[in-house]
Design a binder for these strands. Sequence first.
DNA 1: TTGTATGCGTTATCAA
DNA 2: TTGATAACGCATACAA
Lengths: 364, 364
Amino acid sequence: MIDDGSRRKTARRGAGIEKERVGGSADADLPVHPKKYASSVDVASLAGVSQSAVSRTFKAGASVSEATRQKVLAAAKALDYRPSLIPRIMLTHRSQLVAIVVGGLYNPFYSMVLEQFLIRLQRAGKQVLMVHVNSDSSLDAVIPKLASYRVDAVVSALSVFSARTADELARLRIPVVAFNTPLTSLWLSSVCCDNYEAGRTIADLFLSRGARRFGYLAGVDASPANSERLAGYRSLLEEAGYGPVKIGPAKFRYDGGHQAALAMFGRPRPPEALFCANDLSALGAIDALRKLGFRVPGDVLVAGFDDIPPAAWDAYQLTTFLQDGTRMVEETVKLIEQALAQEPTSAGVPLVVPVKLVERKTTQ
Amino acid sequence: MIDDGSRRKTARRGAGIEKERVGGSADADLPVHPKKYASSVDVASLAGVSQSAVSRTFKAGASVSEATRQKVLAAAKALDYRPSLIPRIMLTHRSQLVAIVVGGLYNPFYSMVLEQFLIRLQRAGKQVLMVHVNSDSSLDAVIPKLASYRVDAVVSALSVFSARTADELARLRIPVVAFNTPLTSLWLSSVCCDNYEAGRTIADLFLSRGARRFGYLAGVDASPANSERLAGYRSLLEEAGYGPVKIGPAKFRYDGGHQAALAMFGRPRPPEALFCANDLSALGAIDALRKLGFRVPGDVLVAGFDDIPPAAWDAYQLTTFLQDGTRMVEETVKLIEQALAQEPTSAGVPLVVPVKLVERKTTQ
DNA sequence: TTGTATGCGTTATCAA
DNA sequence: TTGATAACGCATACAA
């Protein structure tokens, strides 16, 4: 039973055909479940040609005679054959798989960005392996999985993405693009929007509208987007000679904004203008302000960040910054393709996409 | 690059290690891009053991001596080795990949469902291949891709999922679960919520609040969820002897609801109660009604479906149906695991999850 | 144009 | 406990 070890191909092909042609009717040797797709060998034997003929038939621009081609196609159809990409991954060391790591799908901005990513990556011929993590640190736990599936690249759409985690990924030499975290290194690029400038812009707008006391509803402390927005906001206000900015913790969420605003505006001498780390928290804040009896913008000016759909709804009409997700995604995909085309030789610089002020009623 | 064809293995091993250790410094034999991960063979040769020893070291509960184990681990660390799952897929005919097909991420309900799926599938040891399509028919185009990646199962989170498309997938003998489309067949199961009953429930509530003229803002016509909700709504109203329901086209979207409500309520004798196919369109309708000068609920009762976060926001306080996404996802994952454990022998029945009326201010 | 042989990186089987 | 070796399904160099 071992003596034919050297004639492995014959033995293998024979076994394969038998098992598959019978189609699970009368063989109890395997526990059934691992269902098998038809293979090129199956198709070949049914068509009476070689396996390579099948392979060539399904490769664009290969040399197959029309006769062979037809035989193969007929057999393939009969067996519902679809070429597997798995072996190709082994051969080419390319999976065409891009992992997207997300954490905050509750924020419509990220849902929409995700949708853009799916569309563009599919268009670029990539498949998307989606991974959800609760925090940056839990990313570490899934990194080995990503490596095991041999993903070609990783996109992090996390609001917090530490340098340490980036290093961890870099050891695998997988190109990584960070979305809204301005870190770069040999294997890490990033696409951000101009958070700092937005902070300055809104401060300027608030000042021009006559506000003299200022508040900020913070996102997550560790998030660069949050700190940059605050830094820009503060810098211009300080240059203009205005006192400290009151800060409340909103965690990028509606409820967070709601609570923080209730606390901040329940006290004497509340701010006359409130910049929020994102739209979600701004909407929560607006509802809180109204509940407290403040008029927006009559008593308090409010602005957010992201321009998610609800910001434009009649009930809010929130002034905000359009973070151009489409453009950012586009740049991200470009960076990926670039990294895939050629191994990086030096760290890039964070790519910064401009934002656009969208002024609605909450600041007028 | 062709001359060493026969001694590929040796050449490769050397090249692989060199490239990895040196980090891409001095070899120009390959077009660089196809970056190689270290393989178990590389690790084995560095550790001075056989490849099988490496394999066993990384398999839980295998028999390796501590000494071998240590040598292997050291070598693996030096080479940043992670076992590849790709060959395993070929051997086991299982990729552990589940595809999720989405189309409407603009709807927070689907974003949240997606998030649940990611969490639960990851917990179940599956990886998620995400696919975005614009419509049911464009799903056909990606089916071959899914087959090529040998996904173990497919979840359709499309609002429209035709029997024809289901058949197409069934030919591949991949288990499919349809989310909110009550189709089943040998390879297709489905998880829905009780749309019909919800329609009846809200009709009953409207009646008990004194409404006598009724409107419905439709989603997409081809969507079963849409037609079931309408059917239930109509059935109870007709039983109660109330006239035809006015219908407007809202397409499940905020803008759609807005436009449709403007049209419906700009005419004489408008409805006194308005049921909307989902929350998004209900919110758009509320803003339209307010713009037209109607009070909600004073002049018009409004209800939606899904219980997305904005429905609970102060500015709306929308009465709606909690579609228990978490529960539905849970059931879906169960169905998948079931189908994977044992080949289906007969078609199941659509699983129906109850919904819960969440009454807020728009109906009181 | 066609078929043969080989390798891709694993796991599983079997012999030592 | 260890190492050879045969698969898995495909692509490709080469011979025919």
